[in-house]
Amino acid sequence: MSIWTGILLGALAVYSWKFLGFMVPHTVLDNPRVGRIANLLTVALLSALTGVQMLTSGATISFDARIPALVVAALLLVFRAPFIVMVAAAAAVAAIIRLL
């Protein structure tokens, strides 16, 4: 498979999930259990993405400058800093630590 074929096939595959979700009848979410699972699924996936993005490099777990960066980000979230300020601060902390 060429890289271009993979790109187009992969894009279609990702879109298929998105569109499929819109084809499911509304009543699916009337069930409190399904609604609860859908809510918690967002939490689980965002948390997993945070963890993977923060603590892994490829297939290895790594502890590096991203950890203090995320500690600073969390502190800024506690103090209700704007989203962009929090993200920029995390980037700056990681960049400065790596520079030192």
């Binding site: 995320l70 980000a73 989203f83 980037a91």
Partner: peptide, 17 residues
């Protein structure tokens, strides 16, 4: 990584969470 963009990506997910 020199610019901390990997940390920025993690922070963005944390902010949404």
């Amino acid at each position: 990584k020199v610019w901390g963009l990997d940390a920025a990506a993690a922070a963005a997910f944390l902010g949404l969470l």
